[in-house]
Amino acid sequence: MPLIPGWLKRLSWQTVAVAAVTGGIVHIMATLVLPQFARATAFQRIASKLSLNAMHVLPPATPDAQLLPFLSADERIAVCKFDIEAGPVDVTAVLPEKGWSLGLYTASGDNFYVIPAQDMRRFEVALTLVPAQERFFGTIGLGKQVDLSATQVQVPTNVGYVVVRGMSRGRSYTADIEQTLKKARCVQRKA
């Protein structure tokens, strides 16, 4: 049996080129479109638990109530859906020990900013989320009080998510972790 069938040999290079380009276009389109057919992205799965510009501590993952796949039962998270369209959002959280972190995500799930807990000390994070073009001037309006102690973070999209993660050191720490997560805040500044 010949390595290449006769009819294939008779195809012109133009046909092969068209087929290759078609395959490439289909590949690219499928890669970009397939995620839209996802049953639910992570943030869509937890949407019912959230309200805008407020931090919510999600319930611990159990086999009967697991909001996200591959989310360990040791891991507790607090999530805030923010919208900076109407003004900057102030975020505060305490990261008491290693294993904790605070991450900022776009609505499509890109983790564009992450800050881990620090060694040997309780770490209090204070961030102000501002639109990308307003870092220096937009939030410093005449007659407004400016909080210079908070780090300003430029957010690429108006809507996104703050995720505070805490890791359990055992069941006896469960209440402590929950209390620490409940202290996290996500508040829009009044105009």
């Binding site: 890669t31 970009l32 996802a38 992205t41 992570a42 890109d110 983790n111």
Partner: peptide
């Protein structure tokens, strides 16, 4: 995983699975 400069395959992988990845920067 989780990075703002992630390629489309990585982005699609985690969106399809409904996961919330921690950035590989951390």
């Amino acid at each position: 995983a989780g990075r703002a400069d992630a390629d489309p395959y990585t982005r699609a992988h985690f969106m399809r699975r409904g996961m919330l990845p921690v950035s590989t920067a951390l």
